[in-house]
């Protein structure tokens, strides 16, 4: 899932300073699962903003609304009937959702309440961890199912480096060395011979090097 963090209240307060009537728009997908921008977080933010505005002695009217997804226009368009009643939309989706909402309503001010951080997994309730960087050319079959791009601080393809110590990364002692994990997993799989193969330099073109990416499946297109 896409994992994100709610921005600090102060930052959001600053963004909405000129407005008296706002719509806080949550998303029921990834950002709900990582407890950053779902229905509950929308309610918390709305309440925090109301309380702080009351303290300042300035009025604010807030509508809370959570869409099924903010990355599909069919859902975003559900706010069409009432979005014009609000001066600004504070989106609690990931960066993709925030942008798409802004794209669908070009005349509307759409503000971000989330810092989108990574593609990751839930380790336990309340703990999420990065797993993928969307590099566009997966090598997990070569590396025992552990990604050297996302999980090695240097994205090394032939590791570990000299900074690996007792299975931990020199960048952060709480971070596992991805290459230690790769070696351990290859051992478990009985594929340690693969470790001897030198992985050639990666072609980063399928990644962000070629600019924003588009995926098209012609057979699915309606027009």
């Amino acid at each position: 899932m896409i994992v994100g963090n709610r921005k600090p209240l102060e930052e959001i307060q600053e963004m909405i300073k000129p407005y008296k009537k706002i719509l806080i728009l949550g998303c029921r997908e990834c950002i709900t699962v990582c407890a950053a921008g779902g229905e509950r977080e929308v309610a918390v933010l709305a309440s925090e903003l109301k309380l702080s505005r009351t303290k300042e002695g300035r009025e604010i009217e807030i509508k809370e609304f959570t869409l099924e997804r903010q990355c599909d226009y069919e859902y975003i368009d559900q706010i069409k009937p009432f979005v014009d009643e609000y001066e600004a939309v504070v989106s609690m989706a990931c960066g993709a959702g925030i942008q798409y909402t802004a794209e669908r309503f070009p005349q509307k001010i759409v503000l971000p309440a989330i810092n989108t951080t990574f593609l990751g997994v839930t380790l336990e309730q309340g703990v999420w961890s990065e797993r993928c960087q969307g590099c566009g050319d997966c090598v997990l079959h070569l590396t025992g199912g552990i990604c050297p791009v996302a999980r090695c601080a240097k994205s090394l393809f032939n590791g570990p480096c000299g900074g690996s110590s007792n299975g931990k990364c020199e960048v952060n002692k709480d971070t596992d060395c991805a290459w230690q994990l790769i070696v351990d997993r290859l051992k478990t799989l009985g594929q340690l011979d693969r470790y001897e193969d030198i992985i050639p330099a990666k072609d980063w073109k399928p990644s962000r090097e070629g600019g924003p990416r588009v995926r098209i499946r012609e057979d699915l297109r309606l027009d």
Binding site: R40, A43, V44, S47, K50, L51, T54
Partner: peptide, 11 residues
């Protein structure tokens, strides 16, 4: 009891 309940009571 969750945060929303408590924030709402302050409201």
């Amino acid at each position: 009891v969750d945060a929303v309940t408590v924030l709402k009571s302050f409201e």
